[in-house]
Nucleic acid binder design. Sequence first.
DNA 1: CACTTGACCTGTCCGC
DNA 2: TGCGGACAGGTCAAGT
Length: 294
Amino acid sequence: MPELPEVETVRTGLSRLIIDKNIISVDFDTPKSFPNTNADIERFLLNTHFIAIRRRGKVLMLDLSSGYSLMVHLKMTGQLVYRGEESFGAGHPNDSLIGVLPDKSTRVTILLDNGGTLFFNDQRKFGWMRLLPTAIIPDEPFMMKLGPEPLEESFNFSTFAAQLKRRQNTSIKAALLDQTVLAGVGNIYADETLFAAKIHPKSIVKFVPRTKLKLLHTAIKEILLFSIEKGGSTDRNYVNAEGKRGSYIDFAKVFRKENMPCPVCGHAIIKIRVAGRGTHVCVHCQKLYKETVK
DNA sequence: CACTTGACCTGTCCGC
DNA sequence: TGCGGACAGGTCAAGT
């Protein structure tokens, strides 16, 4: 599912593909997918061009020359896929997960002046795309609440520890998934980083030793960066801006590895439920901290 | 305020 | 073969 590395991969792809391209037309299925008025669309979207593609947490911002931006959240099954004139409708036989576009999951279709098309697909309709003034994006309630960017230099260990102070009595996994603690980690990278730090996901935050939290902080940075190198994780639906898969999942140690041997100790990885999510853990390697350690 | 649970959706898989 | 139900998991609203 699109988490920070997947959204970042889409961002770099779109930066390469649609910057400076002019928007000729936009078409969408329902207002839920694109809740803007026709007047706003005509004034601030049509006949403007993309000047920058930015990311904050799992949110994408496609900045336009009109002073407005398309803000996009892919949620679980969202895709932002560009098809150039040459590849239009053709798909990619080798590494594309998707075929001819538009398909039944297509919510928004944006036609560009170079003959290319930007598709916003979303099978489960949880995602959204909307047009709003670039300047007010930071004031949006969702953006206001977001925690620090884990890959920024300023996200050092003391920042991480300070953020966790607000979630002392919950599980460490619930804390990692909380976007106000840090922005961009979802189910895959929560499981993978906790495995790397040898912390059981059900561990209560206040009982996790500082040394383990330091390992976790380092693992977050390293694993997110590594996944970006691999183009993110394609578990089911995720594809990049060209409709292609990411390969991080091939390197995952525990995610979707239930009943398989732990790569460190060989014990079987089990799947449990933590914070309402499917959670993968090696109970032999990952220690459960539920009370003060002596 | 801190924390947990259910709702939002649709496609897929599993058991009968 | 079809059908019901569980499951997938990001975020928010409503619950304790």
